[in-house]
Design a protein around this nucleic acid. Structure first.
Length: 685
DNA sequence: AGCACGCCGACT
DNA sequence: GTCGGCGTGCTC
């Protein structure tokens, strides 16, 4: 046998180009190959350990390519310490996706790669292979035993299934628009069955962790295949195992939240993204990607169809349908016997209110409870009251770290800031004028719970918000209470709006619609309309007809009247027309540069330097708006400002950022602030 | 981001 | 005399 060829010490004709997660480092780094290691089977996508920086500190790096030369002075070249993987954990297509992500979001490649791996693999732990089972990807033995019978589909469901199934094996984006209760999940499952029969894997993404259990349960009931579930609730080891399991092709279905998107699929056949309009798909810190947009890019790379499902399509997706880029699939009616709820505006101007509840709402609650049906009340503000005020001297409890009021949490006797972690005991005496009585102003879920308890003393009330569900298992307990019929009135925030199926709820009320009507962010009306429709969708999902009440002081607001009289699609059409007239997304493209520092002078100097750079580079094609202070200027002790970039052409905006960001990183003012770039921001403030 | 180098004020 | 402040610059 031939001796293994060793790379002589002096031979620099082999250079390892690697990506290292070392935050602001955008460039690849060059290394000499490791000692005494045959290179015949070394492929891009493997992990390496490399010396990096001063001392003997080591980093886990990712091999990008093996090249023949380097621009780096030879004296600087260090040697790779060791190869961690024998075989690449990522295939070429996976690597291509990561390269695209780094370029599009202008985020360092090393960090992007790092975020694609579970923590233990990031840290360089060995890739544990799950026990070798027979791969379910083996076409010859399809284990698709439907445990549960498929439901009979109506014509539009069947058309949707046929359209996607006809496209298997090639890229296509489908938008499945169906009201709550129209049977989207059945459509997903029948398509999934066909993909399983082809011996391929399915990636199913949901916006948040709470939505995984019910979908998982339905999949398990239907399919006798290995199903992997991945979300932030798993331990590092569990995540590692799930990741490897899917990578090895041992699980046929991967169900998860946005981070599951990066798990490499051995044999991908379909990507499903449920509730595509949901802004939780946008990562709001660090690497700010949109899981919806990335899912589409990934599907394109993999040559598989991607199916986006929702009752309330995002304006971007509707525009993509209008332009013929997405194929529209529509489920116009509710499946089975369910009928659409009746939506009604409750004008609360000059009405006597009982802690946020109008008399007509209380009347409706009574009628509903008398019929032994459940009531769901939505208020997007947790705590007892958002303000504590002194009526003598008008002192207000403020957070010292933020430009915000402290929220009263009566249960725990605390005043809390919802924007930083600060909190303090609840006080009764005004610290400014010593008046021995302070007044809680405004409404939170705790306060509404209290008034409900006094109006309906013999009824069971369940409050679902971040505070009440913090304890592990608490949410499941509440959901059981609701589903068993023990709960009469369900009261809660955001988390009620999403996906949960409460068949006995027939009355839904939104206590304060107005808080969403007058925002400075142009996305707000779209989000409010989606929220109203989603919350309304909780009403009357079974045979019982539902009723929805919207309490407002703006009963003639066009958003509400259009939405209620003409429906979501008409609202969306007029909202798109407004966006077009104002050249706003999806008719233009934006990126938001945020910066914050404890010393506001530093952010000022930073943006001054950025503007100077833009001028020097003569980057005139792209509109530059600002910098402006964030609406909450001071948060957690940091002063925050932002600069908005906008261009009608996505590519032009990308070119602009591609010049600006690498130059900006080199400015000395940049190092003095915490900054972030948000491409396609959904939260402008 | 970390980490080291480097040049100016109050201490044993 | 020196310990350490953080401003600046680099990481193959």
């Amino acid at each position: 046998m031939d001796p293994v060829p060793l790379i002589p010490e002096t031979d620099i004709s082999v250079i390892f180009q690697v990506a290292i997660p070392a935050s602001p480092c955008y460039q690849a780094f060059d290394y000499l190959p490791p000692h005494d290691t045959p290179l015949d089977n070394v492929q891009p996508g493997i992990r390496l350990e490399v010396p990096f920086g001063t001392g003997d500190s080591k980093k886990i790096a990712f091999l990008l390519a093996i090249v023949k030369h380097t621009d780096c002075p030879l004296s600087k070249l260090k040697r790779v310490t060791r190869l961690i993987d024998d075989e690449p954990l990522l295939k070429e297509k996976d690597m291509q996706l990561l390269h695209w992500l780094s370029q599009y979001y202008h985020y360092p490649l090393g960090e992007v790669m790092s975020s694609a791996f579970p923590v233990s693999l990031r840290q360089g732990k060995a890739a544990l292979l799950p026990v070798k089972k027979k791969s379910v990807m083996n076409k010859t033995e399809v284990p698709v035993v439907s445990v549960e019978q498929e439901l009979q589909c109506n014509l539009s469901q069947q058309q949707a299934i046929n359209a996607v199934c006809a496209s298997l094996g090639q890229f296509n984006v489908f938008l499945l628009e169906g009201v709550t209760g129209s049977g989207k999940t059945e459509v997903y499952m029948q398509i999934i069955r066909t993909v399983l029969e082809r011996g391929q894997q399915i990636l199913v993404l949901v916006p948040e962790i709470n939505l995984t259990p019910q979908l998982e349960a339905r999949f398990r009931k239907r399919f006798a295949v290995s199903i992997a579930v991945s979300h932030s609730g798993l331990t590092n080891r569990q995540r590692h195992m799930v990741w490897m399991d899917v990578q090895q092709g041992h699980s046929a279905i991967l169900l998860g939240t946005r981070s599951a998107l990066f798990t490499p699929l051995k044999n991908p056949g379909l990507i499903i993204l449920d509730e595509e309009h949901d802004s939780s798909f946008k990562q709001q810190e660090g690497f700010r990607f949109s899981a919806r947009d990335v899912a589409i890019v990934k599907a394109k790379l993999l040559d598989v169809p991607v199916l986006l499902g929702t009752a309330t399509p995002s304006l971007e997706s509707l525009q993509n349908i209008n332009r013929g880029r997405f194929q529209w699939l529509h489920l116009p009616e509710r499946a089975g016997f369910a009928v659409a709820p009746e939506v009604q505006i409750v004008d609360i101007r000059n009405k006597k209110m009982l802690e946020g509840l109008s008399s007509s709402l209380i009347e409706q609650i009574k009628i509903t409870l008398a019929r032994n049906e459940q009531v769901l009340l939505f208020l997007n503000r947790r705590g007892f009251a958002p303000t504590l005020i002194c009526h003598t001297c008008s002192w207000v409890a403020r957070c010292l770290q933020c430009d915000a009021n402290l929220v009263i949490h009566a249960r725990q006797n605390r005043l809390r800031c919802h924007h930083c972690f600060s909190e303090q005991p609840l006080i009764n005496q005004c610290p400014a004028c010593n008046t021995p009585a302070l007044t809680p102003l405004g409404l939170g879920t705790e306060r509404v719970e209290q008034v409900l308890a006094s109006v309906f003393p013999d009824k069971t009330i369940v409050r679902l918000d971040l505070d009440s569900t913090r304890r592990k298992g608490a949410l499941e307990g509440f959901l059981d209470k609701i589903n068993s019929g023990e709960a009469d009135i369900i009261l809660g925030t955001q988390m009620l709006a999403k996906g949960h199926h409460f068949p006995n709820v027939t009355l839904v009320a939104i206590l304060d619609v107005d808080s969403g009507l007058f925002s400075v962010d142009f996305h707000a009306s779209e989000k409010l309309a989606q929220l109203i429709i989603q919350v309304s969708g909780r009403a009357g999902r079974a045979e019982k007809k539902g009723r929805v009440l919207l309490q407002t002081r703006q009963p003639d607001h066009p958003l509400l009247t259009t939405l209620i009289n003409q429906g979501y699609r008409d609202f969306a059409t007029s909202a798109l027309a407004e966006r077009y007239a104002a050249s706003l997304p999806p008719f233009s493209f934006q990126a938001l540069l945020r910066a914050q520092a404890t010393d506001s002078n530093k952010t000022e100097l930073f943006f001054e330097a950025v503007l100077g750079l833009i001028k020097r580079q003569n980057l005139t094609e792209t509109r530059v708006l600002g910098p402006i202070p964030a609406p909450m200027l001071k948060k957690a002790g940091f002063y925050r400002y932002q600069l908005l970039f906008q261009n009608n052409n996505r590519l032009e905006l990308q070119k602009f950022l591609a010049v600006l960001i690498p130059e900006m990183v080199k400015l000395k003012q940049t190092a003095k602030v915490r900054w972030s770039l948000d491409v396609d921001p959904v939260d402008l403030y």
